[in-house]
């Protein structure tokens, strides 16, 4: 009897494997995992959990990323060795070849709506803030849209850089200031010089003569049109007066 009991106590002294608690907490979605990834944009810290990617930041240090995450997202971060395929998934996402899942819990429904709408903007295209506001059913909330985008916890992945001011000023960027925003848009093939020239002349829309459809500049429907086949409009009324209808894809106006 006595020997058996001593042996069995030894069994009870076994410790859980290293990192067990962290894995359980991550599986339950209580903590998020993160790692540093080398991307086309340089080194980016990316956090994720079972629901998807939860944050991204070009932070100067892991500590700063952790602090920012704890403050803004309110969960704990655990640094891990990333799963083998995650780096490739991230690369594809940033190249526009894949759509990852995102965890936007903790954001207001309004912010979530703004960010989900932003995800619809294709690579190489841009939209004005007012477009997001109108599309999500809050046409007057243009400033609030700007705030929601400035606080985007997953910049680069959720392309808030594709939302620009309609006056041609590139606008603020939470992911590293206006210069970073320009750099990323360039990388995505947006012709910024053309965009700004149009905006400065007061032109908000471009029409294609052959189809009589007007779009936001950069809309992919105009991607093959030659410059001389474009006609430019200051506003919707002008476009409609000339017999143009709004593009059903970029929706410059309610069709």
């Amino acid at each position: 009897m006595a020997t058996a009991m001593i042996d069995l106590r030894q069994l009870g002294a076994v410790k859980a494997p290293v990192g067990f608690a962290e894995r359980v907490l991550a599986s339950a979605g209580v903590t998020d995992s993160y790692a540093l990834f080398d991307t086309v944009l340089g080194p980016v810290y990316v956090a994720w959990n079972r629901l998807g990617v939860s944050a991204a930041m070009r932070a100067p240090s892991a500590l700063q990323f952790e602090e920012w995450f704890g403050r803004d997202v309110g969960r704990q971060l655990v640094r891990v060795d990333p799963p083998a395929d995650l780096a490739a998934k991230i690369e594809d996402q940033l190249a526009g070849k894949r759509r990852l899942q995102f965890d936007l819990r903790g954001l207001t429904p309004f912010s979530q709506a703004v960010l989900r709408k932003t995800l619809e903007i294709r690579r190489g295209e841009v939209r004005p803030y007012g477009w997001i506001a109108r599309e999500i059913g809050h046409p007057a909330a243009v400033r609030a849209v700007g705030t929601a985008l400035a606080n985007n916890p997953i910049p680069y992945f959720i392309p808030c850089h594709r939302v620009v001011r309609s006056d041609g000023v590139i606008g603020n960027y939470g992911g590293g200031g206006p210069e970073a925003k320009k750099q990323i848009l360039n990388l995505e093939g947006v012709q910024l010089a053309r965009l700004q020239k149009l905006a400065q002349s007061g032109f908000r829309y471009e029409g294609i003569k052959s189809t009589k459809i007007f779009c936001f500049p950069t809309c992919y429907h105009g991607r093959h049109a030659r410059e001389e086949n474009f006609v430019f409009f200051h506003d919707e009324a002008e476009a409609r007066a000339k017999g143009y209808r709004p593009c059903k894809d970029c929706r410059p106006a309610v069709a």
Partner: peptide, 10 residues
């Protein structure tokens, strides 16, 4: 197991 976490039991 959760794919995204990829946390194989150690």
């Amino acid at each position: 197991l959760v794919e995204l976490n990829g946390s194989e039991p150690s």
